[in-house]
Design a protein around this nucleic acid. Structure first.
Lengths: 117, 117
DNA sequence: GAAAGTAGGCACTTAAAAGTAACTACCATA
DNA sequence: TATGGTAGTTACTTTTAAGTGCCTACTTTC
């Protein structure tokens, strides 16, 4: 389990979905730049591996947060984009980002105990 | 790093803070039941170890999201509660919870690919 | 005829996070 | 005199997730 709280609570499920590294950032990009192809997405998220990117996209797709469209041309082209559900999350993420920026200005994250290990 | 996105972005910092297992659940309880002592909190979060609970509380305190009050009696009594910053998060978490509950009803989390490993 | 480009899958390794258990201090009560 | 209760800390082990590199298929371009 990654987003522990008492299992089988919906909050737990949504946190498990969103909490992995990169996940919200991927959503952020899809929201910001519109639907993107796999390769473009990978280049937009510097440092992520194909393995993790694929895994994240699969989970988001399984939850209906993004769609996946595959053209069977060769070489293949796969495009991902936000569904209605994905757009709902946007508001929450926006609100969180706003708080984060304010807290940053207030120095909330400068305590050494919060260091990146 | 736990909440990856490009480092040094405030969103990354706030995600690193909130994303660990149990973290949002701890905030939830403090919000719901008011300030609580360490032991009570531990019993309210079934399954968490003292080690992790302490670690989470320290991080939240370092970010100014909760306060810590220690009476130097014996045995000691330490109480934790939400600060103003903590209460700000509440709105975001409420919004997220609302979405989570609706998605649950819609079956968003029932895909086998989202299984708890 | 060789190489490149796309969207991954698969196996192996590594590193970070969490679990577990034992130990501290000090007093009050039985 | 032994026991329990509080809020941790520390060391050791295990689990889980992520990193890395290699492999595929098929066509188009050089």
């Amino acid at each position: 389990m990654t987003g522990k709280s008492p299992p089988s609570c919906p909050m737990d499920a949504i946190l498990r979905l969103l909490m992995g590294p990169w996940t919200t950032y991927i959503l952020w990009i899809l929201n910001d730049r519109g639907p993107q192809r796999f390769g473009v997405l990978k280049r937009a998220v510097p440092g992520i591996s194909t393995r993790v990117l694929t895994e994240r996209l699969r989970m988001l797709q399984a939850a209906g947060v993004i769609w996946r469209e595959q053209s069977s041309t060769i070489p293949p082209a796969v495009t991902y984009g936000l569904t209605e559900r994905g757009k709902e999350l946007r508001e929450v993420l926006d609100a969180l980002d706003e708080i984060a920026q304010r807290w940053q200005r207030e120095g909330a994250f400068s305590d050494p105990r919060l260091a990146t290990a």
